[in-house]
Simulated scan of single mutants.
Amino acid sequence: MAQRLIFLDTETTGLRVEDGNRILEIAAVEMIDRKLSAPDRHLHRYINPGRDSEEGALNVHGLTTQFLADKPKFAAIVDEFLEFVRGSELIIHNAPFDVGYLNMELGLLGRGKIEDYVERVTDTLKMAKDLWPGKRNSLDALCDRYEVDRSGRTLHGALIDCELLAEVYMAMTRGQDSLLIDFEPTKEEAAANAARRSMRAPLMITQPSAEDLALHHAYLDELDKINKADCLWRTLEPKPAAPEA
C-alpha cells in the first residue's frame, strides 16, 4: 500500500492561539512513496482571518490585512482541506503550533480535531532534536545542515516552507528504505569484504588524558543544562567502584 505523506504548514496572525489569533495561510504538499506529487496535487490557500496580524507576525509572513480582505474564510475551504489530508500522515515542523491552530479553527466549526482525519502527525522538530540534541533545529538551520537550498525564502510562506520541509525530511530519513531491502552479500562479496578487513591496520586505542576527561565532562554538563536532563552518555559510563572497607 502506498505511503501518503502530507507536509503541512500554516501562517497565522500571531504566535498565541489563546490570544484569538487565526490562520491566514495554509499549504499542504503531497508525497507518495517518497516522491513528491506534481504541483497540481498540492493545496495552497490564503484565508481571510477576520482580524489584523500582530506586528511581529506581519514582519515574518508579510501578508497584510488589505491583501487578505477578499480571500475566503476558513469555513469556505475546510471541506477541501480535510478531504485533501484525510487518511494521510501529516509531517509538520513544530507540530504542536500548527495542530493547535488547526484544532481551534475546526473546533469553531464543530468539526472535531485534525487527528480525527489523519493517520498520525509527525513532528520534524522533535525528530531533529532527537538527532541533533543541543543544536539549532529551526527549518532554516536544518536546511543549512542538510544543504537544502533556501535562497528563495525571503519571507516565511506556507508553501515554500512545505517544499523545504519535504527536502529536509527526505534527508533526515535517508536510508530508512534500506530496511525493506535484502542486503545479504553473495559469496564473492563476502570473501572480498573479509579480505579487505584482514588488510586493515590494527586499531589504535589512545587513553584520554586528565585534561581530555575534564573537557569531556564539561561538555556533558553543558548538554545536561540544555536538555534539562541527564545526558545519555552518562548512563553508559561505568560507575566508580565502591571504596573497599
Rank of each mutant, 00 (worst) to 15 (best):
M1V: 05
Q3N: 11
R4M: 10
L5Q: 14
L5K: 15
I6M: 02
L8M: 15
D9K: 08
D9G: 07
E11C: 03
T12Q: 01
R16L: 13
N21Y: 02
E25S: 15
I26M: 07
A28F: 03
V29K: 05
R41I: 03
R41N: 09
L43E: 05
L43R: 11
R45S: 06
N48V: 00
D52Y: 06
S53T: 02
S53E: 02
A57L: 04
V60S: 02
H61M: 00
A69M: 10
K73V: 11
L82Y: 04
F84R: 05
F84E: 05
F84L: 06
L90H: 01
H93I: 00
N94C: 01
V99I: 10
V99R: 10
Y101G: 10
E105A: 01
L106D: 04
G107P: 15
L108E: 14
R111E: 09
R111I: 00
I114S: 12
D116N: 14
Y117F: 15
V118I: 08
T122I: 06
T124F: 00
L125I: 06
L125N: 09
K129N: 12
L131T: 13
L131Y: 14
A141V: 03
C143H: 01
Y146M: 04
V148H: 00
R150I: 00
S151M: 03
S151Y: 05
G152W: 06
H156C: 02
H156P: 01
D161I: 02
E163H: 09
L164I: 06
A166N: 01
V168K: 02
M170P: 03
M172P: 07
R174M: 06
D177A: 13
S178T: 11
L180Y: 12
L180P: 05
K187Y: 10
A190W: 04
A191V: 02
R197W: 08
M199P: 04
R200D: 11
R200T: 10
A201Y: 08
D212T: 10
H216D: 11
H216A: 15
D221Q: 15
D221A: 15
E222F: 11
K225L: 13
K225A: 14
I226P: 01
D230K: 15
C231Q: 03
W233Q: 11
L236T: 03
L236M: 05
E237K: 05
P243A: 07
E244K: 15
A245L: 13
